[in-house]
């Protein structure tokens, strides 16, 4: 396959950045998308040019590091996979592929396609945990949990924190990310104790980071590589109202 790549190049956070076109030839359909960029980068290095920087690590769809908007879609044209799981057979010879970084005020570009996702860290630090220390916990089977509830919690917990929800949302909202954690811990008895303060604090941090608000468009869930459902956002909303009504945090 021969392709034209239109890639966002930006030297650093201060640089204005812009698109640059690259021609690339002899691409095998068996290559993964990132391997195709590896090939481009090897070429660039040979020519003495700075390779295209992008985040990636596990290359099996679970670490959440890879982050590219390919032809307008986070993680590319296929549903329920990450960029690293995308293969070149999903493209055709002669295609022009536009590759951009995640775009959001809260996720500034560090270099080329690499963005800063530390706002997610701060949201998690605001309450995405159960406050227990190591040791001194009850036996694992002390509290039975209905199977369907454990499954629902697992659906939410599957979030890989990649940020595709933010990247795809027209408002760059982080609601799906926040809802996944709030929902997981709201469903499990272990999360009950801090249920109210958790949702209040995490949402407050989310707002402070400059993400947009949710308008229930559903793009987040549609582009989520782990197909996290909008029902978790609904649960997040319920948790918030109930916290605001019942909690004693004035």
């Amino acid at each position: 396959m021969n392709l034209t790549l239109k890639i966002w190049r930006q030297k650093n956070q201060q640089d204005k950045g812009g698109f640059k076109d690259y021609k690339i030839s002899d691409i095998s359909p068996d290559m993964s998308f990132l391997e195709m960029i590896d090939v481009l980068n090897e070429d660039l290095v040979k020519k003495g040019e700075d390779p295209v920087h992008f985040d990636h690590d596990c290359r099996e769809g679970i670490c959440g590091m890879c982050s590219m908007v390919i032809n307008g879609r986070p993680h590319g044209p296929k549903q329920a996979i990450t960029t690293c799981q995308l293969h070149m057979r999903s493209f055709s010879d002669g295609d022009t592929i536009t590759i951009e970084p995640w775009r959001a005020k809260a996720f500034p570009v560090i270099k080329d396609l690499v963005v800063d996702r530390t706002p997610f860290e701060r949201i998690m630090q605001a309450g995405g945990y159960v406050s227990i220390n190591t040791g001194g916990v009850p036996d694992a089977n002390a509290i039975p949990i209905p199977k369907n509830m454990a499954e629902d919690a697992m659906d939410a917990a599957a979030c890989i924190g990649c940020g595709a929800c933010v990247a795809s949302c027209k408002n760059a909202s982080a609601m799906l990310f926040v809802s996944a954690k709030v929902s997981q811990l709201a469903l499990l008895p272990q999360g009950m104790i801090e249920r109210k303060s958790r949702v209040e604090k995490m949402l407050m941090q989310m707002d402070a980071e400059g993400f947009g608000a949710c308008t229930n468009t559903g793009a987040c869930s549609a582009e989520c590589p782990k197909e996290i459902s909008l029902t978790h956002i609904a649960r997040l909303n319920r948790e918030y109202y109930s916290a605001k009504v019942y909690s004693e945090n004035v």
Partner: peptide, 22 residues
Amino acid sequence: NRSARPIGYATPNKSAVTSWTS
């Protein structure tokens, strides 16, 4: 919401998964 994405995408998301009215 508009300020949450100061630099937009060059290519629009053409997937038909979300309702356009939203």
